[in-house]
Amino acid sequence: MKPPPFDYHRPAGLGEALQALAEAGSHGKVLAGGQSLIPLLNMRLAAPGHLVDINGLTELATISADASGVRVGALARHAAVERDGSARAVQPLLAQALALVAHPVIRNRGTVVGSLVHADPSAEMPAVLALLGGSVRLARLGGERDVHARDFFVGPLESACLPGEMAVSAFFPALPERSGTAFCEVARRHGDYAVAGVAAAVTLDEDFRIIAARVACVSVGPVPVVVDVTGVCGQRPPASVDWDEVARAVQDRIEPEGDIHATAGYRRHLTGVLVTRALRGAAQDAARSGANDAGEGRA
């Protein structure tokens, strides 16, 4: 298990990196954290001719948060994003999900943007981006484009990032006030890819009734499956929602497959259980944040 040979590029700046990627075309690959790519190389399941190592481009290790959301640069490690106070304040789902990504040591090296580009439908970060309707900024020589999450995840391990392009950052939008989030998953072992998992976001109105509710499900389709359940929740307080009906609505939309760890049926069932748990958790979180806002208003 040793990687095959490749041409190694260590650009001094983003322009050089894009130049190298442009020249390598479909034989080029970006090396950031390498926590998904290097296992594939070691097993010789991937053999890119050129690796463009961006670990020297510290200008990409940015995490910037403002009222609109959190922008995470291509070299921001999972652990850095997880620990970043302002990112946590603006979009708490990031830290909630990151705690479930593999193990702490992997998070020290792996990057959020790398995880998005890897586009594993079992991974947490793609689901987070999909749930929040975020976007990925793809740069190429002479230009860049922002791709919305719904267009970014194309299939299992397949993203919209084209040869010659590099994902330079991702944007995770903030949620409106009185919103809450949760990420619930079941993995075979702690830290494994989830057998099923659900990210949820809920927004309440001033009377603490649900006015928006969405989930993104992992491991139950070729890409994260986002389902808007606002209608099924029916502008009711969380306690009055028919959660079983909500769960069924999501279960109708997923396409789980069986594998060595779980049957398709179990994944469907589990997704239903986790949809309820995550949405209720998110609703509680939203209620807390609403109460805090109200408290601050009075002060």
Binding site: Q35, P39, D53, V105, R109
Partner: peptide, 23 residues
Amino acid sequence: EHGVCGACTVLLDGEPVRSCLTF
């Protein structure tokens, strides 16, 4: 050599990382 067992963990600038998943 695929980053799961952790036997190869070393400290890189003080932080633990998998040396088998690092060039």
